[in-house]
């Protein structure tokens, strides 16, 4: 009782502090400093219509590279923590025909929609991370509905590595052509898609990087699911 009231009191004090701090920031007023620069130059400098993805991939590409690294480390960490010699699915009850058939019908659509999200990253909200997570949902569905389903490991792990390395490679090509890492060579040097901004084949290297990130995130999260649903079997 005393513990709980002390905790509530502390939270109230912290909340009051935060509210006091935010009270100084007026709501609904223009306080952008660099924001204006992004919004005014995003089309001519990156070719993307979606300013958010342009900032995330192009202006601040290092952040995204870091995020991809974080996800990779998370996946490797889960694999290392749950590493055992012999692992198997231990689920016993097969789902009913409604569940399994529904999953069979849904999985292709889920994967197609995930790809749709990351291919249109430079035009619509979304991008590589939501798209990849959607694809992983498809594999989660398969894991939930079928007691024996397993992702094809060799293919998945290779694809993940290749996608990650290709991202760095795209950046390195930029270093060779334009002088700095993650330089957008497709847009700045090749001028590809300059005449059709807003259509699919535009946006410099954003679509390419997002396809790579989508594939990487999709395979990575599926790998985490795979690691977590399996249990050790005694020999």
């Amino acid at each position: 009782m005393l513990k709980r009231s002390l905790a509530i009191l502390t939270l109230l004090i912290i909340g009051y502090w935060l509210a006091q701090g935010l009270a100084g920031v007026p709501f609904g007023q223009d306080r952008m400093l660099v924001g204006h620069y992004y919004l005014e130059h995003v089309k001519e400098q990156t070719g993307a219509v979606n300013a958010v993805t342009a900032i995330v991939v192009n202006y601040r590409g290092f952040d995204t590279l870091g995020e991809v690294t974080v996800l990779f480390i998370a996946s490797t960490g889960v694999a290392a923590l749950l590493w055992r010699k012999k692992k198997k699915r231990s689920a016993k009850t097969e789902g009913s025909v409604v569940l399994t058939t529904g999953t069979r019908l849904l999985v292709p659509f889920v994967i197609l929609f995930g790809s749709y999200i990351f291919i249109h990253g430079h035009l619509t909200p979304g991008g590589g991370f939501p798209g990849g997570a959607t694809i992983a949902t498809g594999f989660l569905l398969l894991y939930m509905a079928f007691t024996t389903y397993e992702i094809p490991h060799r293919g998945f792990e290779k694809t993940e590595g290749i996608a990650g390395m290709s991202y760095v490679l795209v950046g390195l090509i930029g270093l060779g052509i334009g002088g700095y890492f993650l330089f957008d060579w497709i847009w700045q040097t090749w001028q590809l898609g300059t005449d059709n901004i807003g259509r699919l084949f535009s946006g410099g290297f954003i679509p390419i990087i997002y396809i790579l990130i989508g594939i990487k995130v999709g395979t990575e999260l599926s790998g985490i699911i795979d690691n977590m649903v399996k249990e050790e079997v005694s020999e």
Binding site: L105, V107, P108, I111, L112, S115, Y116, I119, L142, L200
Partner: peptide, 18 residues
């Protein structure tokens, strides 16, 4: 074009269960 390409790729991976 991209839609057809994707349909071909995704179809190749999922037609067995679909």
């Amino acid at each position: 074009e991209v839609g057809l390409l994707l349909a071909l790729i995704v179809g190749a991976f999922t037609y067995e269960i679909f």
